[in-house]
């Protein structure tokens, strides 16, 4: 067990600070974008437009999350590629098998993606809190009565139902979206791990590119979009299981060794 944990720690050593820094920077950027949106949007003429859901869309916080997600996948995928060295020689001299190394790496990467997902939920909730706390002050400064702001006790709850990104982050009672998200999470962990595993063996890994494209294109979906959950879930499942099976059953390229 100690050896397996050590392999997982090897994966963590190379990325944990980068992932934490990425999450922090993403949070700061998203907060800045949201605050800037509030600053430029609150005016006496169209205060009714300054609602939480339009803020989430117009402030481009979702775009920032998408960029951050791509960077996260790059960090996790490139970790362990060992460019400039053939670390596979060391991996192959361990008492832990190559398959176990891959599994440890996949588990760590899944946890890293989970951390990113959780952080986005918290950041989005934080932005809701920021809206509740700061928007009234900005209204007062603009000469708009704060009572005109479209914000009530149910606003955050409704936003997490109606806004595509917020709902997909935390799909409430929509079981199919939760299942799709869990599949995405696991598949991202596997595909990022198989990418570096393939590079170490002198091969290419394309599954992660497919999965990132699918996630970017299909992650955000309205409530009740069952077909999107099915399609994106199946593609993610195929990418994860397929690349995992190829990596576990693959024969090493002797020309590379």
């Amino acid at each position: 067990m100690k050896e397996r944990l050590s392999v997982m720690m090897l994966a963590a050593r190379g990325t944990v600070y980068k992932v934490i820094l990425l999450i922090a920077v993403t949070g700061i950027v998203q907060a800045g974008l949201f605050y800037w949106w509030m600053m430029r949007s609150i005016s006496p003429d169209d205060i009714w437009l300054v609602n939480l859901e339009s803020g989430m869309t117009d402030s481009h916080v979702v775009f920032a999350a998408a960029i951050s997600f791509v960077i996260l996948c790059a960090i996790l995928s490139l970790n362990g590629c060992s460019f400039g060295s053939k670390a596979i020689y060391t991996f192959r001299r361990l008492s832990v098998s190559q398959k176990e190394v891959l599994c440890c790496w996949a588990v760590y990467n899944t946890l890293a993606v989970l951390l990113f997902w959780m952080s986005q939920i918290l950041i989005m909730l934080g932005l809701c809190g920021m809206y509740k706390a700061v928007a009234p002050i900005l209204c007062e400064q603009s000469g708009v009565p704060a009572s005109n702001l479209p914000f009530g006790p149910q606003t955050v709850y409704i936003a997490f139902y109606r806004h595509k990104y917020l709902h997909s982050l935390m799909p409430m009672a929509e079981i199919s979206r939760w299942i799709r998200n869990v599949i995405l999470l696991g598949s991202l962990g596997i595909c990022t791990a198989t990418f570096s595993n393939s590079v170490r063996k002198g091969k290419k890994g394309i599954a992660i590119f497919v999965l990132v494209t699918v996630t970017l294109g299909m992650f955000c979906a309205s409530v009740g979009m069952f077909e999107v959950d099915i399609v994106s879930g199946l593609i993610a499942l195929g990418a994860g299981v397929g690349s995992g099976a190829i990596a576990l059953g693959g024969v090493e390229d002797e020309a590379y060794i």
Binding site: L10, R13, G14, N79, S82, F83, G84, S85, K86, A87, I88, Y89, T90, R92, R93, L94, S95, V96, S97
Partner: peptide, 25 residues
């Protein structure tokens, strides 16, 4: 096999270390 491979070490000019890891690591 993996059971006795630890009795053999390997230094190569292709290098087998982990480039992102420190010596201490």
């Amino acid at each position: 096999t993996t059971k006795n491979i630890a009795r053999i070490s390997f230094a190569t000019n292709e290098h087998s270390f982990f480039p992102g890891l420190t010596a201490k690591g």
